[in-house]
Design a protein around this nucleic acid. Structure first.
Lengths: 349, 349
DNA sequence: CTGTTAGCGCGTTCAG
DNA sequence: CTGAACGCGCTAACAG
């Protein structure tokens, strides 16, 4: 179809062409069931509207109805660092973030389609303050947080003018809904996998609680709980190659790394020392980053359901717009089995 | 600041509080230079507006001005496959797309901030037809294409009601602006790197022209041109392990793979046959996917400037809104040197 | 079941 | 330099 030079058709022209009033056209096309219109009339209006290529003007509609149906999105990780970051200077792969944000966008986009959200409004990086939300562009806001940075934006959003749901955190201020991956549970799944393979001395590789990063802390806590539940002894977190090798010499046969990138580092340390994965040491990561299948010959890892999280966020926000109270939802991560884990070797001698 | 229960402030209240008319407030805040307002008055209005927390209502403004300042975004890869895909059934890692889309969003977001685009409107996957663009939600549209799928959407957008710029393709219909990575140039850069290392027998690994995929075709063409320019002989494209090994036995010392994932496959074939990278064979990929540093011990590859492409897209679209004609821009890819390439081994005997 | 009417909040004439 | 009046296109309320 060719719309070149097409003058926009307005509701009045549809009304005239269909021989009804503009109100009737509006009633039919807005589809509100509480307006009863003769089926034949409605059908005629719809046909005429379609033939004329009529599309309601959203600006006018939004002005009249005082809502847009649109949901706002902030990708917090995209954009300049915030000064309150606990990890300024830490080299985190941009690609990790981008994969994650891409998955988030995919999930949002898919959920928006299914739930008939007409459009998502993405605010430019670092652009948003609470005041901006007053401008009536969106009915609600989703914030995809970056756990490696502070939650500056979220804290500026206490008592925001529209409902807010935060993704990938469990530390939003009161009144803000949350959807996060259950990091502790994910760690538990990883540990459980290793225990099933017969490992009893399992190390945690990464900054964990000490890093100050919410997710890493939860992962270490999950590691501890899972080991204790299994009647095994947690080890203190290890964050460098030499200590990892020490631990292995001390009898550790499996390593749970708090991230896939950490697992890559652990593998490098082990490999350089002539230790084989998984023959000598089993290795599990967390994230399932792109390329995880090439780490350590195929890294067994815990997949974070980012797209599902985004979809859950959309549903949660829609529920809030429907009057429900803010809630916290935790999604179950999934173990991806590859080739970096194996049954513990029977100790000979 | 706490906006709980805050009633939205309207222009009239600002006017009253500042002791002027709404027209004056509008003139001051819209910042249009052709309206002369007493400096003191203007300053007072601005201060009062700020103190009252006044934010103009975008719906009303959009209705009045007939534009929004917003740019639409379609991530074509997100969403269900189209039937016209040439590669239905081909397993392409979702993660690759997501990284790419994430980078695109990051670039868009950053450019939007710099160029003061108030917001980006992301249309849900597979939701958009040309008609939807008539609804006045956006002043222009960016389409991030998926080269592995058809351009169904783009072709439905001939003569669209708003300017359109397509990303990651050079095959959009007439009238649509384009920004793409210069794939041929990227291939040339890769080949040039290998030639500099002394390689003279360089293979192309992947579907290339025969795949029917625009990007892969350009990359193979770029490979050919670069070799010819260097006075060397291009080989026909290889797309499986056994033939790759044959080629190596036949004297090939370097392989340019059309994608990083392809490079991983090539590496696997070589490695399984006991050939070492880069000692026996040098290997270059294309894309610089997340995890490329773990492929083949650190894959030398061609990085696609996705974020820059997105930013260029925003600029191109803004230029079109400014009255300029649609153009095509090609961005120069960059070589990422890692450890999978080395000087050619001097043949002994 | 359908039509008439009155704004939604703002930006822009055009008098003063 | 300022303010009153109008209308962007649509939908909610109400009258018929």
């Amino acid at each position: 179809m060719d719309y070149a030079g097409t003058v926009k058709v307005r509701i009045k022209e549809v009304a005239i062409a269909a021989g009804v009033s503009t109100a009737t056209v509006s009633k039919v096309l807005s589809g509100r069931a509480d307006y009863q219109v003769h089926a034949e009339t409605a059908e005629r209006v719809r046909r005429v509207a379609y033939e004329l290529g009529y599309v309601p003007d959203v600006a006018a509609r939004n002005l009249r109805t005082r809502q847009t149906g649109q949901l706002g999105v902030v990708l917090e990780a995209v954009g300049p660092s915030e000064p309150d970051s606990l990890l300024t200077g830490v080299a985190v792969s941009d690609a990790v973030r981008r994969t994650f944000d891409g998955a988030i966008m995919a999930g949002l986009s898919e959920a928006a389609r299914e739930l008939e959200v007409p459009a998502l409004v993405v605010y430019p990086s670092g652009q948003l303050d609470a005041r901006t939300l007053l401008d009536g562009r969106v009915d609600g806001l989703l914030v995809s947080c970056d756990p490696l940075r502070g939650h500056g934006l979220l804290h500026g959003l206490r008592s925001p003018p529209v409902p807010v749901v935060a993704l990938w955190t469990q530390r939003a201020p009161e009144g803000i809904g949350m959807v996060d991956v259950n990091h502790a549970q994910g760690a538990g799944i990883a540990v459980h996998h290793l225990v099933e393979l017969g490992h009893t001395r399992i190390a945690f590789y990464g900054g964990g609680v000490r890093s100050g990063v919410e997710h890493f802390a939860r992962r270490e806590q999950g590691y501890r709980s899972a080991l204790e539940e299994a009647g095994l002894l947690p080890q203190s977190a290890i964050h460098d190659g030499p200590r990892l090798l020490q631990a292995v010499q001390g009898g550790v046969t499996a390593v749970f790394a708090e991230t896939d990138l950490g697992a890559a580092a652990a593998f490098h340390a082990l490999d350089s020392a002539g230790l084989s994965v998984p023959a000598d040491v089993s290795l599990v990561g967390f994230d399932d980053i792109q390329g995880a299948e090439y780490i350590a010959g195929g890294l067994t890892t815990v997949y974070q359901p980012a797209a599902e999280m985004a979809a859950a966020g959309v549903r949660a926000l829609l529920a809030r717009l429907d009057g429900e109270a803010p809630q916290t939802a935790l999604l179950r991560p999934r173990l991806i089995r590859r080739r970096s884990t194996a049954p513990v070797r029977v100790v000979s001698g």
